Computed example of a mutant assay.
Amino acid sequence: MVRTARVGSALVAAGAEVLVGTAEPARHIMTAQGLDSFPLTELPPFPPREPGEEPPPAPARIRLAEPDYLTVCLAEERAAIREFRPDMVVSDFRVTGAVSAALEGVPAAWIVNSGFFTHPFPQVMSDVVPQLRQLGVPEDIACRILGDVLYIPDWSRYDPLSGITSQESAAALRSLAEIRHVGPVLKEAPDQSPSRAEARKRLGVDADGPLVYVSLGGTAQGFGPLTTIASLLGEVPARTVLVTGPNIPPERLPGHTADQIMAYTEDSMLWTRAADLVVTHGGHTSTMEALCLGTPLLALPGHAEQEWNASRAVSLGTGEVLPADDVEAEFVPTVTRLLGDRGLAHRARTVGEVLAYRDGAAELASHVMAFASLAALERKRDD
């Protein structure tokens, strides 16, 4: 939702009128950016699993393919499109967004990292598309679930299409008119971010003391490692700030030893800039924030896509990956070593200086404006 809000803001700055559909709990993010929004039905998050707790049996098909969910999504989106009459619909991994747009005769685009074409997108094609057909969506529209344009919020060097091996994903990509790597889409342009000293001043943090910022994502999937880390933060030789994510209440971590804990922050980029080390699950946004802001990171990935994201920091010499099996024994020694590595800090700053001057949101918005304008001209010609 933060990424979507940033894209919306960039489109407004480019001269567009924007309406954002989002789950009700996230509408405050749009309001904070001055964006008009309306509520959309969304699936509830997975509940936190206790450390060692076995995951539930895998369902026969992904939750996104539930017919009642798809029916409601299509109805809500199509009603909004008819009322707002947009020139283009842009979806951030919402499986019905481009379908609703096509049913209403509007061009559409998706924003998604290429890692999602390994998982879960093949399941979207195998489960969601047949269900859409059963709900009466014409086959040619149901199969073009990505719409007309795919925006990858990264550089091709780190998010290459060559890594997509799934036959289902490859078939879906062939239906597109265009695929564009636009660069990272962060909450704000990295080159507009304040200095480390200014960030600490705004956050009320000591100007010189070491600071570690810990965030393992917005879902509850990182609850197990988060529980382990939370109990160890008191041993870290630095001020520690722990963000649990909106789906893990801080009270679920009664044994935490962090100096500061919160469920959610609007200031993730500010904390990342202020920190000497970011501990992350290797999510795309948190990894790119650390790289673009010049802050070393320690990644604790939970699945292959996060491992791939974290590998970028490793390849650039600005961070390390700690395997899940090593977290309990190696977390404190690793954090301590990284905090004392001046070469690491220097390399991270150098990388940040190189990466900070490309704003993916502005580039994406510029292309949307051009694509939507041309599509509108074509529709007028046909009329």
Rank of each mutant, 00 (worst) to 15 (best):
A79V: 13
V243S: 02
P225D: 09
A348M: 07
G21M: 04
R3E: 10
A109W: 05
A365Y: 12
A65P: 05
T336C: 02
C292V: 01
V205S: 03
E77M: 15
A275W: 01
R49V: 09
D68I: 10
F46C: 02
L43Q: 11
L216R: 05
E104F: 07
P47C: 08
P45T: 04
V314G: 00
R61I: 03
A348H: 09
A376N: 06
W155H: 13
A171P: 00
N309M: 08
G97W: 11
P184K: 08
D206S: 13
R379L: 08
A197W: 01
L300I: 15
R202Q: 15
R61S: 15
A372T: 05
R196Y: 01
R61W: 11
I164Y: 02
G224T: 12
D36W: 00
C292D: 02
S166Y: 04
R6V: 03
Y158T: 10
T240S: 13
S195T: 15
R133G: 14
I145W: 04
N247H: 15
P249T: 10
A172D: 08
V124T: 06
R27D: 03
A177F: 01
P86N: 08
F46H: 09
A348Q: 09
R252V: 01
F38E: 10
T295G: 04
N247R: 12
A13S: 14
T240N: 05
R239V: 06
L291E: 04
G245E: 11
E139W: 03
F46Q: 13
S169M: 04
A79S: 15
G302F: 05
A197H: 07
V137G: 13
P67R: 14
H284I: 01
M369I: 14
A263M: 14
G136K: 09
A230D: 05
A142L: 10
A275H: 01
T272G: 01
R133D: 00
D341K: 05
G224S: 15
R358H: 13
L176V: 07
E24D: 13
A230Y: 06
Y158P: 01
E77C: 03
V89W: 06
A290V: 10
V182A: 04
Y357N: 15
P56T: 11
F46E: 15
P160I: 01
L298K: 02
P160T: 02
E378N: 12
P48Y: 06
F331S: 07
A58I: 12
A10G: 08
R337H: 07
P130M: 07
G282M: 02
R3V: 13
R3L: 14
D92N: 13
V354S: 08
R6H: 10
A207Q: 15
W110R: 11
E289H: 07
L253G: 11
W308N: 06
L291P: 02
A108N: 08
A102Y: 11
A345Y: 02
G209K: 14
V332E: 12
G147H: 07
E139P: 12
P55H: 03
E66N: 14
V128S: 07
T318P: 00
T336P: 00
